[in-house]
Computed example of a mutant assay.
Amino acid sequence: MVDIVDVATRSRMMSGIQGKNTEPEVLIRKALHARGFRFRLHVKHLPGKPDLVLPKYNAVVFVHGCFWHGHTCRYFKVPQTRPDFWLEKIGKNQIRDRSHEASLLGQGWRVLVVWECAVRSMKREKSLLLIDLMAEWLINGNEYLQIDENACSLTALVTTSKV
């Protein structure tokens, strides 16, 4: 399939995509801060430069975009233009993510991955269940947890697993 915009426009659009301070990340930061959690942002000396670092809880939080990190949810769709390129790129991102998570766990950090779909669900339902889950994990959680939109439904149970 041919791209619907010219190369210059596509380049401008792609260069506008942020890696830091994304809308989902900012929403989570504001909500956690309002609950009294204090954190550092994008700590460069830690693997993967986690979005949030909470030293008091020995925890790091990554807020992953469903497309860029290849989450298996309704928001991830392989582009029709250059699908091989995108699958390779997203695959490398996933490998890098697992490597960073394993390194952090090896250094004694607890790792929380929050998927963009969970934040979208929180916004859509005007629910603070995501923040409740995060706060509970920060205070009492195991070493690794992923939260997606399924975990943010009122009937879902949150399970923890190792990397």
Rank of each mutant, 00 (worst) to 15 (best):
K123S: 13
P47S: 11
D148V: 00
D6K: 09
S161F: 10
R38I: 03
C66R: 00
P55S: 07
D132G: 11
N21E: 08
I131G: 09
H33F: 14
N93I: 00
W86Q: 04
G141M: 06
P55T: 00
I147H: 08
S99R: 15
R29Y: 12
V113W: 04
T159M: 10
L105F: 13
F85C: 11
A102R: 10
M122L: 11
Q146T: 06
V2T: 13
H42D: 02
L46Y: 05
I28N: 03
S15K: 14
G91E: 08
R120F: 14
T155V: 11
P83Q: 07
F85R: 15
V111L: 03
A8L: 15
F37R: 02
R98W: 13
E88H: 14
E88V: 10
N93M: 05
G19T: 05
Y75F: 05
L27E: 12
S15C: 12
V5Q: 12
W68L: 01
T9M: 10
R96T: 06
D148G: 05
R96V: 04
S103I: 02
A151L: 12
I4Y: 15
F37Q: 02
Y144T: 01
I139P: 05
T160R: 11
F67R: 04
G70C: 03
V119I: 04
A118C: 04
T160V: 08
L27P: 12
E101T: 01
V111D: 07
S103F: 12
A8W: 13
L27N: 13
N93L: 06
K56Q: 11
V26I: 13
A102C: 15
L145S: 08
F85D: 09
D6W: 10
L133G: 06
V61D: 00
E116P: 00
R40T: 00
D51H: 06
R120G: 04
V111R: 03
G48F: 04
E136Y: 12
W86C: 02
A102F: 13
A34I: 02
G91C: 07
G19S: 07
G141L: 07
V26D: 08
D6Y: 14
V2Q: 15
Q107S: 14
Q18V: 05
A8C: 13
E101Q: 09
D97A: 03
M122C: 08
R40C: 08
N58G: 11
E88S: 15
N58V: 07
N21C: 09
N142R: 14
V78Q: 04
R29S: 04
S11L: 14
G108F: 06
N21F: 05
F37C: 01
P24V: 01
I28M: 06
I90Q: 05
Y144D: 03
I139G: 04
V2N: 14
N140F: 10
T9P: 11
S103R: 13
